[in-house]
Measured scan of single mutants.
Amino acid sequence: PEDEKKAKEALKRANGDEDKAKEILRKLGVDPDRAEELLRRLR
């Protein structure tokens, strides 16, 4: 869904750096736990 698209985009923008991607997602208003879960799934 929408969050998943955001997560993929964030990872791309962060050049695969998960911590940076998490930060980006947090700024986009995605719940930190949700962000973590999404990134884990994309790994």
Rank of each mutant, 00 (worst) to 15 (best):
P1Y: 14
P1N: 15
P1E: 15
P1H: 14
E2M: 10
E2A: 11
E4C: 06
E4W: 15
K5S: 10
K5D: 12
K5N: 11
K5R: 14
K6N: 09
K8Q: 10
K8V: 13
A10N: 01
A10K: 00
A10I: 04
L11H: 03
L11F: 06
L11W: 11
K12W: 13
R13V: 12
R13G: 06
R13N: 10
A14S: 07
A14G: 03
A14R: 00
N15R: 10
G16R: 03
D17I: 04
D17H: 06
D17A: 05
D17C: 04
E18P: 11
D19C: 04
D19P: 06
K20Y: 09
K20F: 08
A21M: 04
A21E: 01
A21D: 00
A21R: 01
A21N: 00
K22R: 13
E23I: 08
E23V: 07
E23S: 06
I24G: 02
I24A: 06
I24P: 00
L25T: 00
L25Q: 00
R26P: 01
R26D: 06
R26N: 09
K27V: 11
K27F: 11
K27H: 12
L28S: 07
L28W: 15
L28D: 08
G29M: 03
G29N: 04
G29F: 03
V30F: 15
V30A: 02
V30R: 01
D31E: 10
D31Q: 09
D31K: 09
P32K: 11
P32Q: 08
P32C: 04
P32N: 11
P32V: 08
P32A: 12
D33P: 05
R34M: 11
A35S: 05
A35P: 00
E36I: 08
E36P: 01
E36L: 07
E36M: 08
E37N: 05
E37W: 06
E37R: 05
E37A: 10
L38D: 01
L38K: 00
L38W: 05
L39Q: 00
L39C: 02
R40D: 09
R41V: 09
R41F: 10
L42T: 03
R43I: 12
